[in-house]
Design a binder for these strands. Structure first.
Length: 131
RNA sequence: AGUGAUAUUUAAUUCAUCGCUGCACCGUAUGGUGGAGAGGAAAGUCCGGACAACGUAGAGUAACAUGCCAUCUAACGGAUGGAUUCUGAGAAGUCAGAAAUAGAAAGUGCCACAGAGAUUAGACUUCCUUAAUCAUUGUUAUGAUUGAGGUAAAGGUGAAAACGUGAGGUAAGAGCUCACGACUUGAUUAGGUAACUUAUCAUGCAGGUAAACCUCAUGUGUUGAAAUGUCACGUAUAUCUCAGUAUCCUCGGAUAAAUCGCUACUCGUGAGAUCAAAUGUAUGUUUGGCUGAGAAGGGUAGACAGCUCGAAUUUACUCGGAAUGAGUGAAUCUAGAUAAAUGAUGAAUAAUCACUUAUGGUGAUAACAGAAUCCGGCUUAUGAAAUAUCAUACUUU
């Protein structure tokens, strides 16, 4: 049975890693989300991990409540869909993901899940190709 | 009953599945169980504190803030009560509301439009005196025109024209003089903690504006948890377990000491805690601190402390004229994240609104808004509901 968890370990925390993503990461786009992603070679000690972060720009949504709401929706969608596309067992190298919300309006959970599924599909193929 | 205004309170509830962050317990490679997890404004960051770091002889200047009085408070620019002035209502007693409410008699500036004149005030029309010229059935007079003065009483303008009424006075007039009244300042009397009020006496005649500059009084050291402290690339902080914290006397020293460093061991040498509280007499026991060893555990994307038990929350009684006030007793522990937890989905019930075949059904709506060191206020935002007061109360005539 698959577990749909999303704990502290899977979060992308360090500012250095995020700035690296912005500098050298590949990017994908489908409304309403933009994805920045990168793969790093595995050191032998650590087990491969997928880490993930969310940003919602303050320009477009001034109130903190709306920003929080959108972040939670994205996180929920990612939590439910991740194990189908990128399960932990099949990972050979660790992935960093950063979802950016680009739309001007607040969208429903369905549209967000669709875009996340699309993004994750794209990622599946690409990671296979590299190896 | 309804409507409106003001104030206060609440900020729909329950269940199921999946998930997130601390805490406690169990297990020890992963995890499991239990219980906790956002507001009245968490917002604006506008005041006041706690706390921390740095600075600090004393005095002054500048800057900023405050500006009737008393009480409350840790403190305040906050609250409560009172005073004064103004506005509204009323026949009156009174009632309601508002006020950056020290100083305009230190000085400077400004006062649109209108108006002759807006501050060393002012002469347009009137009124009065006078000179020249002209006119007249008025001739020491009257009238007209022009010039030189006087006048602030009348007209008109304005938000505002240097006090009101009456008398004297004068060519005409004028606080020019007098009486009464209003007002300013000062002294005394009575009441009040005080602001202030009452009465008497003296004094004098002053436009408004200080949310214009300014003057006076009082207060303020600067920076904010991104403060600050401890430690660190073989070990910090915290947790658990074990051992030690002794003896003597002349009370300041001596001896001893778990253990540690210097090379693995020995010698040698050096270091080395040796305190506090409670209980109480078996010179002991318990708790904390300190010293040392070990275990577990986390860890460079730095860790930990600061960090959540506090001017705390709830409640009962007492004090007080009142307060978001004070005191006493009882009960309770109630978020602690750090690229940011507090969520998602489904169902049911209740509320409001709309439609309808009408005490039922269908559909829609559910505000403002998200902790970041912590408290006390202020300000602003807010769908809906509930409660209280007033509009519309009372007394006298």
């Amino acid at each position: 049975m698959k577990r749909y968890t999303l704990g502290k370990e899977q979060k992308l925390k360090s500012p250095e890693a995020i700035s690296e993503l912005f500098r050298g990461g590949h990017s994908l786009y489908k409304y309403p989300l933009k994805l920045k992603w990168s793969l790093t070679d595995n050191q032998e000690k650590t087990t491969p991990q997928s880490k993930f972060g969310v940003t919602v720009p303050k320009r477009r949504f001034k109130s903190a409540v709306k920003r929080n709401r959108i972040k939670r929706l994205i996180r929920e969608a990612y939590r439910l869909n991740r194990p189908e596309y990128i399960p932990n067992d099949k990972l050979n190298c660790s992935i960093q993901l950063l979802f950016m919300y680009i739309a001007d309006q607040e969208e429903s959970l369905e549209t967000i899940t669709k875009s996340i599924q699309w993004h994750l599909q794209q990622l599946q193929t690409k990671s296979c190709n590299e190896e």
